[in-house]
Amino acid sequence: MTHTFDKDYWQHHWDDRTSHTVAANPYLVEETAGSTPGSVLDAGCGTGAEAIWLAERGWQVTGADISATALDAAAKQAESARVDATWIEADLTTWNPTERWDLVMTHYAHPSIPQLDFYRHIAQWVAPGGSLLIVGHLHHGAQHHSHDGEPPHEATVTVKDITALFDASSWRIDTALERSRTVGGIGVHSKTLRDAVVRATRLI
């Protein structure tokens, strides 16, 4: 099945998920350990778990998403956490902000354009000396078939393909990992996520 990942898809996706409390992605925790807080854009922020986690630690946070439903939930959760954040409704595939951020991050965002084109697009928003953190669903090759609860083929990537986006004269690859983690509870209520994790720093 082919997914369009357009505005209607994401509005429907978040309709029955905004009441769920989700912890910040553990890769974000690892990759920002010891970092000096600065400005951050969460591209495809959903209900804001990662953005709020960083705001609680002194980062100046902007969260952008195509879904107004998700952003409304994010704003309410930020208010409950007593942190400040800016929430922007935008189609990130066409959005061209003039601002640049010290950290641009995206966690499992699936756009209506090819996944790698999306990463290339949001990389433009990283300030010199800043970093891009990508957490995506790992592609397992042509022989892998999606099952219920697994991401569709067009939403998956490989670490090799992500790192190939970055010219060595302009970027330094700091992290390039394939990881697996279990989420969602115990036994039949859990599932294994197979992740591609890449962090790159803009040199110029």
Results as ranks from 00 to 15, higher is better:
A24P: 08
Y27Q: 14
Y27S: 11
L28D: 03
V29G: 00
V29D: 04
E30M: 03
E30V: 00
E31M: 13
T32C: 03
G34N: 02
T36M: 10
S39A: 08
S39G: 14
V40E: 07
V40C: 11
G44S: 07
G44W: 07
C45P: 08
C45W: 04
C45N: 09
G46Y: 04
G46F: 02
T47N: 11
E50L: 01
A51H: 07
I52E: 08
I52S: 02
L54Y: 04
E56V: 00
R57I: 01
G58R: 10
W59A: 06
V61W: 00
T62K: 06
G63N: 10
A64H: 10
D65N: 10
I66C: 02
A68C: 05
A68H: 09
T69C: 09
T69V: 14
T69D: 09
A70G: 10
A70Q: 08
A70Y: 04
D72H: 12
D72L: 12
A73G: 11
A73M: 07
A74V: 02
A74C: 03
A75K: 14
K76M: 13
Q77R: 15
Q77K: 15
Q77C: 02
Q77A: 14
A78S: 12
A81G: 01
A85R: 03
W87G: 02
I88E: 05
I88R: 13
I88D: 00
E89Q: 15
T93N: 02
W95S: 01
N96P: 00
N96C: 12
N96M: 13
N96S: 15
P97S: 07
T98K: 13
T98H: 13
E99S: 14
R100A: 10
W101L: 05
D102L: 05
D102T: 06
L103Q: 06
M105N: 07
M105S: 09
Y108W: 07
A109Q: 12
I113D: 00
I113S: 04
L116M: 10
F118G: 00
Y119P: 02
Y119S: 01
H121K: 14
I122P: 05
Q124W: 11
A127E: 12
A127K: 13
S131I: 03
V135G: 01
V135W: 00
G136L: 00
H139Q: 12
H139K: 10
H139T: 01
G141Q: 10
G141D: 09
A142I: 09
A142Q: 13
A142P: 08
Q143W: 14
H144M: 02
H144P: 02
H144S: 10
H144T: 03
H145F: 13
G149M: 08
P152T: 07
A155L: 03
A155R: 11
T156K: 13
T156H: 03
